[in-house]
Simulated assay, not measured.
Amino acid sequence: MLVDDTNNILVKFRCHGTPLRCPPVYTSELHYVATYIRRLRQIRKAVVRLLNREPDTLVVIRTPNMQKFDPAYSLFYSNWFCLQIDTVLRGMFKGLNVKFLDAWEMMLAHHLPQDLHPPQPIIKNMIDVILSYICPAGKT
């Protein structure tokens, strides 16, 4: 958790649970997957309240990453689950004044290999996109 009282900023970070791609995964550890849509609904309600109160607030939502697969691994796993999460995420915030940081497309378009945890140049590109929303060119 990060608190900046001077600027009235509170940032909370919560690491995800055991990734589905790390066998064996017990069903008792999958509570974060089962509640994904419910959690998104709550986040959407909070964003709607925020935008009703402060319509000029910039809300940026980051999409899921793609995972790198070698040929043998790709026989049993795919990015299908991440694609489903991305589809649900975009659908949940459709029609709201939010911006998407499209990690999926940024990784797919980059010359570096896909990786669940993107390399530094891709992270830099993501930060540059966020900064372009905050400080657009030509705006004084």
Rank of each mutant, 00 (worst) to 15 (best):
N79D: 15
Q120K: 11
L89C: 07
F13I: 09
N97E: 05
G91Y: 10
K45T: 15
Q67V: 02
T18R: 06
Q42H: 09
P136T: 02
I123P: 01
W104S: 00
V47C: 11
R62N: 13
F69W: 13
T63A: 01
G95P: 03
V48E: 14
I122H: 01
L89T: 02
M92I: 11
K45D: 15
M106K: 10
L50D: 09
D5V: 11
N8W: 06
R14H: 01
V33F: 09
N65W: 09
Q84W: 15
N65Q: 11
R39S: 15
I61R: 00
N7L: 03
Y26S: 06
A137F: 02
E29P: 06
L51N: 01
L2A: 02
P118Y: 02
N65R: 06
P24A: 02
G91R: 11
K99G: 03
A109S: 10
I43R: 12
C135G: 01
G91M: 09
D4K: 04
P113I: 03
Q120T: 13
C22A: 03
T140H: 09
I37A: 09
M92T: 15
C15Y: 02
I85S: 11
C135P: 05
F81H: 10
P64Q: 08
H110G: 06
I85L: 14
P119G: 09
L83Y: 13
M107I: 10
A137S: 14
G17M: 00
C82Q: 15
R90P: 06
N7H: 01
F93M: 01
A137Q: 05
R44N: 07
H31D: 12
G138Y: 00
F13C: 05
R49L: 15
R38M: 11
P19A: 03
V25C: 00
E105K: 09
D86Q: 10
F81L: 14
Y32K: 00
Y133S: 05
K94N: 14
C15S: 13
M92C: 13
T27H: 05
M106Y: 00
R39C: 07
V129S: 08
L75P: 06
P118A: 03
V98C: 00
A109T: 08
Y32I: 02
C22G: 02
H110F: 10
H16L: 05
I37L: 08
L112E: 13
L83E: 15
D5N: 13
G17Y: 03
P24H: 00
Y133K: 04
R38K: 12
P119Y: 11
L83C: 13
L96I: 12
Q114C: 11
H117N: 09
R39D: 11
R38N: 10
P118K: 00
F81T: 13
T140A: 04
I122D: 07
T35N: 10
Y73M: 13
D102L: 02
D86I: 08
H117C: 08
M106D: 04
Y133W: 10
R90V: 00
L20A: 10
N79H: 12
L2M: 03
K12C: 06
L108T: 06
D128F: 03
F100Y: 12
A34Y: 14
A109F: 04
G17Q: 00
R49N: 15
I127S: 08
V60T: 03
Y133D: 04
